[in-house]
Nucleic acid binder design. Structure first.
Lengths: 154, 154
DNA sequence: ACCAATCATGGGCCCTCACCTACTATCGGA
DNA sequence: TCCGATAGTAGGTGAGGGCCCATGATTGGT
């Protein structure tokens, strides 16, 4: 009944934007059930993947402002998912470490994300999903690299 | 230096969200140079692809609220890209028609979009870009279909 | 001992977007 | 003729996100 204009469907830019938005909102809705947002998951992921971070490192790694990370870290701390500790060497810094509860929570969040992924990519076969993921990874690496350069330019 | 957590890169949901956002913002930046937004382009596309619409039809086709389409159509009208005319049969309705200038403008916008697309998908070969587009089209059709159903449920 | 730089933190601002409501004009049927 | 439904229009609201600045504590170098 209400078909999307073919002019738009011919633009990969449009498709990326639209499907990306759908992915984002669906995942966000799932996380909201646990009183979380996408950034919370991203921070947890960074901590589990790369180990403890000083907040400044978290900010630069995730490409977020250092003033915004405070609240995110604070939320995770009150939820008991991370530990904050003043750095013994440099007492200005705060080292953030994931707790066992935090690691467990991340595993659950990842499971949620996979569920969303399955429903979202349902029309694709397994190998097609892998193909899509591989292509997107390369595109992501490219745009991420560009973001790095512009950030270094400041 | 600031690598993205592998946990996130493994989630297609995340990749879609991130690359989609990049696509969206880059295209939006281009359109902003012409004082346009994504919705303006979408409305123009619908009108050129499917011919004149009543505003209500535009809203339902594009999945946007009928109260929000007013300003978009208004902007396009003052720019001379579309014509608004009271329906002679039903004077409540307003029929929106693209002008020649509107068609020309859309062609330019599409060229802009292709430029963005090229820089965004630069790391992929031509056939890979086509592959990606095909996969995304199928995913988009799927999520769009789901949106239709939930809308019908109201 | 002093000074500039760094870090965490709190606060505020502004933009976008989606949604919701109220009002008016108009239509169609009972 | 009256009444409910529909279309366009204006306006408000609240969540979310990004960005920037001021402050206070602390550091390292001079």
């Amino acid at each position: 009944m209400s078909e999307t204009p073919p002019s738009l469907l011919g633009l990969t830019t449009y498709l990326l934007s639209k499907t990306g938005k759908a992915a984002r909102s669906r995942l966000a809705a799932r996380l909201a059930d646990r009183d979380m947002r996408l950034w919370h998951m991203a921070v947890l992921s960074a901590l589990v993947d790369f180990g403890p971070h000083v907040q400044r490192e978290l900010a630069s790694r995730l490409g977020i402002d250092r003033s915004d990370i405070v609240k995110i870290v604070d939320d995770l701390a009150v939820a008991g998912l991370i530990d904050r500790a003043r750095d013994t060497g440099d007492r200005r810094r705060v080292t953030v470490t994931p707790t066992p509860a935090g690691r467990a929570a991340l595993r659950e969040l990842q499971a949620e994300a996979l569920t969303v992924q399955e429903t979202l990519l349902a029309p694709l076969t397994g190998s097609e999903q892998a193909q899509l993921a591989a292509l997107l990874r390369r595109v992501h690496a490219h745009v991420h690299e560009g973001a790095e350069e512009s950030k270094a330019g400041r």
